[in-house]
Amino acid sequence: MNIVSIDFETANKYRSSPCAIGIVVSDGVKIIDEFYSLINPLMEFDPYNIYVHGIEEVEVVDAPTFDELWPVIQKYIENGIVVAHNASFDMSVLRASLDRYQLPYPTMEYLCSVVLSKQIWPGLENYKLNQLADVHSIRFNHHNALEDARVVVQLLQAAIAEHDVRTISELIDLHGVSCGRIFERSYVTPKVKKRKQSKRRGSVGRP
């Protein structure tokens, strides 16, 4: 199954204000497709958000709105396991945008690469995307939606190679992580499965 990495940048504090999206698809070994687009959120931009991602309001004036892009996005996310770094943010942007335009939710599975990275590479100082990239000597332009999505894929490709597994499904099974799911107007978050503990046998003493 393909890995479909997705990353949003937003215009302001509202999750329904995506102003850019990056999608990168990998077969687990190599990148096989990429997609990037600015998005017109039809909202004002907050100076802090501009500082973070560098996208100015004037740049998105002629960009498509989320609902106009949705048919393209949907084709990507319905053909693999969707992965995002700090997925709670990106999945909330997706849901809020679908709600805003009254679009039906897709039925899809997704992973959080922060949750997965903590199981794959325990003991790191932090699990921010730029920190993980530094550890793996990956250079990129942080907070560019396409480059962020690409780094997530590169990290997962490295993890698959390191653990001598063939697919993302085998990797998450190996590390006891369950996928989250999105379905109509609801969702379930990714989780680390509880390890089964073996019960010790012992005799019960009589008083």
Rank of each mutant, 00 (worst) to 15 (best):
H53E: 01
D27V: 09
V114T: 09
Y14V: 02
H136E: 13
L42V: 12
L116D: 01
E162D: 15
K118M: 11
K196H: 12
H53A: 03
F183Y: 15
I3H: 04
N49V: 04
V82N: 03
V152C: 10
Y105L: 02
Q119V: 11
G176C: 04
G180V: 03
K30F: 09
E125W: 10
G123P: 07
Y127T: 07
Y14M: 12
R201K: 14
D67P: 02
Q131H: 15
Y48H: 12
I55W: 04
K199Q: 13
T10K: 08
R150S: 08
V114W: 06
I182K: 07
R150H: 06
R181W: 10
N12Q: 08
A96Y: 10
G176V: 07
V25L: 07
R139G: 11
V177A: 05
S26C: 06
S137P: 00
E44Q: 15
I77S: 02
E184R: 10
K194S: 13
E147Q: 14
I23G: 00
K128P: 03
F45N: 01
F35E: 00
T10A: 09
E59L: 09
Q131C: 09
A11C: 05
K30G: 03
L129T: 02
Q131N: 14
M108C: 06
P18D: 01
V204R: 15
I39E: 01
C112I: 08
V114D: 05
P71Q: 07
P122A: 08
F183S: 12
W121G: 02
H85V: 02
K194R: 15
K118S: 05
V83T: 11
V52H: 09
V61A: 12
I73P: 00
L111H: 09
C19E: 05
S92P: 00
R100G: 01
K75N: 14
